[in-house]
Nucleic acid binder design. Sequence first.
RNA 1: GCCGGCGUAGCUCAGUAUGGUGGAGCACUCGGCUGUUAACCGAGCGGUCACCGGUUCAAAUCCGGUCGCCGGCGCCA
Length: 440
Amino acid sequence: MHRHLSVSMADYQKIAHALQKSEGEPVHIRGWIYRTRSSGKLAFVVVRDESTIIQVVAEKERLPDEEFAGAQKALIESSVDIEGLIHEDERAPGGREIHATSFRVIQFAEDFPITEDHSTEFLLDNRHLWLRSRRLTTIMKIRHTVVGAIHEFFRSRGFYEFHPPILQPSQCEGGATLFEVKYYGDTTYLSQSWQLYAEAAVFALERVYDVAPTFRAERSKTSRHLSEFWMAEMEAAWMELDEATQYAKDEIKFVLRRVLEHHERDLAYLGRDPEILRALLDKEWPTIKYREALEVLAEHGMDVPFGKDLRTLEEEELMRHFDTPVVVTHYPKETMAFYKPRDPQHPDEALCFDMLAPEGYGEIVGGSQRSTDIEELMESLEQQGEDPRNYEWYLDLRRYGSVPHSGYGVGVERLLAWICALDNIKDAIAFPRTVTRKSP
RNA sequence: GCCGGCGUAGCUCAGUAUGGUGGAGCACUCGGCUGUUAACCGAGCGGUCACCGGUUCAAAUCCGGUCGCCGGCGCCA
């Protein structure tokens, strides 16, 4: 059962390719058993590979006894190497099947734990096996396209890919949510954001971006939170708030366009109507101020006093009035992170923005112009209980040729969850990490 | 952190109100079947009823406690 396995360098086709062949043409595929059933002299074995699935018919009279016996008894997820002839038959799923002339089992799988009844918890415990499901395979392919599109978007616009440290001594988004790491007898932390380091980089490279893991030890148990997630961030010198929000809209539209080009059928398989996304491409995505959002909420009986951040409930109510993503700017300065600058025109507002996705998916982008005022920065740090002396290197960036600059981050899994209409963000990443989930 | 729900076979669940020899479907094994579509038919295998304690002649069921998980909220991408 645990023998050494080997493969030959024969001429194999992807199943998707084999499915395009005509009646009687020979094919040679390899993959894993997806479904199987047999009667006395026939076995119907549906085989999957990375591309798709196809039904293989094994007939007792056409195969050596040993191979037919193998086809009959091989359990789901056994690995197989099959040669045969394409046969068009309306009884086959997809209208085409393979009549096997050779059926080699590479490894007889043990009883596969995942069957048709399953709880989300069980599937998470067996994530290393559930990864093979069509659902997760499809999502991972779309994720590949989303991340590729983000790289393409920024590179084609003159941005440099820049890598910040993952181990960082100071915080960016609030102290309670840091993961501590032992560091040669000292303590350091996993990155919550690349931002402070990206700000250092824009004085050299001017425009930088990155897609990198981010760690937040928030005790959030919701369908929108992960402890380890990927953030696609950009930071640009000589850029103010308006241009940054426009970049965010352009980037998300670009990603949608690439996904629609490559994954229309995948989206449909996941239950996401591609037309809903396509309709967004030609529309203008509104930008409103936080104060205007409060007015919309007040008209619908939700009185939020200026100064409170929008809660999930309020974001959802707000988004009921829009059918596209919406950018909300100028949140109250007092609740915002220390690096978000005051608006000189309205000192109680910060030059910052969030992008909210429709259909209840909420915040997918967060960003701001960055404060260049050392006094303001030190004051905000102290207000948030921080010691400005820990941020000397960051303050240095304002002492040597400071310029206006802005940046934002896109939550890759949140974006993916919205694009794929997932009901839980955990399915947007291969091995999710949450408050209560750290394995496999 | 707060609120709600759940924990019984490998998996998904019923059984708990009203205590009385632990069930079903799926998976797996064996037998049958030459066109299956989550195949079907028959048989078999399979249990620390989350854990600890209590009440009782008798506890999956009642009482007390503990642990774990899921979801919502807060916070955030």
